[in-house]
Simulated assay, not measured.
Amino acid sequence: MDGRISTEEFKQAVKNTCVGKKYEEFPQAMKAFIEANFKMIDTNGDGVVNKHEFCYNCITRIAVDNVQVVYDAFDSLLNDDDRRRGGITLSRYQELYAQYLGNLDEKQPGVYLFGPLNTD
């Protein structure tokens, strides 16, 4: 033991604490991380992550040849309420993050939380 958490140990911990659970059931440290991540993406601080903020966050992390794939990923996250308000609120982000971590269904919107699945 070197006192460090390996990638496999981290993945197992996330699986044990998040898969099949709602956001409210996540450990407090995970909730704090998710909320801090939302605030980092919401660059104008209005409480809603819009398409441009989402795009900026994605293109600083992944290479894309065409920004449209990022816009399409954002659109895939949205429900009707999100479309009306022009983006994703913290509570919706929490819901999507819970889907991303806790729902093994690859067809749910949360799979696009960090951008397009395929950047080709």
Rank of each mutant, 00 (worst) to 15 (best):
R4M: 12
E8H: 05
E8P: 01
E9V: 06
E9C: 07
F10D: 10
F10I: 11
F10T: 12
K11M: 14
Q12F: 01
Q12S: 11
K15I: 00
K15A: 05
N16Y: 03
T17K: 14
V19Q: 13
V19R: 11
G20W: 08
Y23L: 10
E24C: 03
F26K: 03
F26M: 07
A29Y: 10
M30Q: 05
E35F: 05
E35G: 02
N37V: 09
F38N: 06
N44D: 15
N44S: 11
D46W: 04
V49H: 07
K51G: 05
H52V: 14
E53S: 01
C55I: 07
N57D: 12
T60K: 10
I62V: 10
N66M: 03
N66I: 02
V67N: 04
V69S: 06
V70T: 09
L77Q: 01
L77N: 03
D80N: 15
D81C: 03
D81S: 10
D82R: 02
R83P: 01
R85S: 13
R85T: 15
T89Y: 15
L90A: 05
S91N: 15
S91L: 07
Y93S: 04
Y93T: 02
E95H: 15
Y97F: 12
Q99A: 09
L101G: 00
L101A: 00
N103H: 06
N103C: 10
L104H: 10
Q108C: 14
G110E: 02
G110P: 01
V111Y: 02
L113G: 05
F114N: 04
F114R: 04
G115M: 01
G115D: 00
P116T: 02
L117C: 02
N118G: 04
T119Q: 08
D120N: 15
